[in-house]
Amino acid sequence: MAVPELAPRRTLGGVIAVWVVAAVIGVLVGLLAGDEWRAQWLAVGLGGCLILAFAIQLWGGRSQGFTERVAASALGALLVMGVISLGFGLASIVPG
């Protein structure tokens, strides 16, 4: 029999932390990687965000909703990195 938690821990912080790391990785890759290598490094960064999402959620110690929290972290990281890469892609085609 499972004992209900009296005060469940907040889990949104771990999800948002992965999104922030994805934004930092996306900006760093956009600034430091060349145009021909940007997509490959973004994929590596997204893989790192997925591993980070698993680590944060495992560290939290809650089994209820584990899959949903990891999925939200990974999907959010994908969207954040996609928007940042879209910005860098559009910036590269603008004549300057």
Rank of each mutant, 00 (worst) to 15 (best):
M1H: 05
A2P: 07
A2W: 01
A2C: 12
A2M: 07
V3Q: 06
V3L: 10
V3A: 08
P4W: 00
P4T: 06
E5M: 10
E5Q: 07
E5F: 09
L6A: 10
A7F: 14
R10V: 15
T11P: 05
L12D: 09
L12A: 12
L12T: 11
G13R: 04
V15G: 08
A17N: 03
A17V: 14
A17H: 02
V18L: 05
V18W: 00
V20S: 11
V20Q: 03
V20W: 01
V20Y: 01
A22G: 08
A22T: 05
I25D: 01
G26Y: 00
G26V: 03
G26E: 02
G26N: 02
V27L: 05
V27Y: 01
V27H: 00
L28W: 02
L28F: 02
V29F: 02
V29P: 02
V29E: 02
G30V: 07
G30W: 00
L31T: 13
L31A: 15
A33S: 09
A33R: 01
A33I: 06
G34F: 06
D35F: 06
D35Q: 10
D35V: 12
R38L: 13
R38M: 11
R38G: 06
R38D: 09
A39D: 08
A39K: 07
A39I: 12
W41K: 06
W41Q: 11
L42F: 05
A43T: 13
A43D: 06
A43Q: 06
A43M: 14
V44E: 00
V44N: 00
V44P: 01
V44L: 09
G45C: 08
L46D: 03
G47R: 04
G48S: 07
C49H: 00
C49R: 00
L50A: 13
I51L: 15
L52C: 07
L52V: 08
L52W: 01
A53W: 00
A53F: 02
I56H: 10
I56C: 14
Q57V: 13
Q57E: 15
W59I: 13
G61D: 07
R62A: 14
R62N: 12
R62M: 15
R62D: 11
Q64L: 15
G65P: 11
G65E: 06
G65C: 15
F66S: 09
E68Q: 15
V70M: 11
V70T: 05
V70E: 02
A71G: 10
A72F: 10
A74E: 02
A74D: 02
L75N: 03
G76Q: 03
A77V: 15
L78R: 06
L78Q: 09
V80A: 06
G82W: 03
V83A: 08
V83P: 02
V83L: 09
I84A: 01
I84S: 00
S85G: 11
S85T: 09
G87I: 04
G87W: 01
F88I: 09
F88E: 03
F88W: 02
G89C: 10
G89V: 12
L90D: 11
A91I: 15
S92E: 10
S92H: 04
S92V: 12
S92K: 08
I93W: 04
V94K: 03
V94A: 14
V94L: 15
P95T: 11
P95A: 12
P95D: 13
G96P: 05
G96S: 14
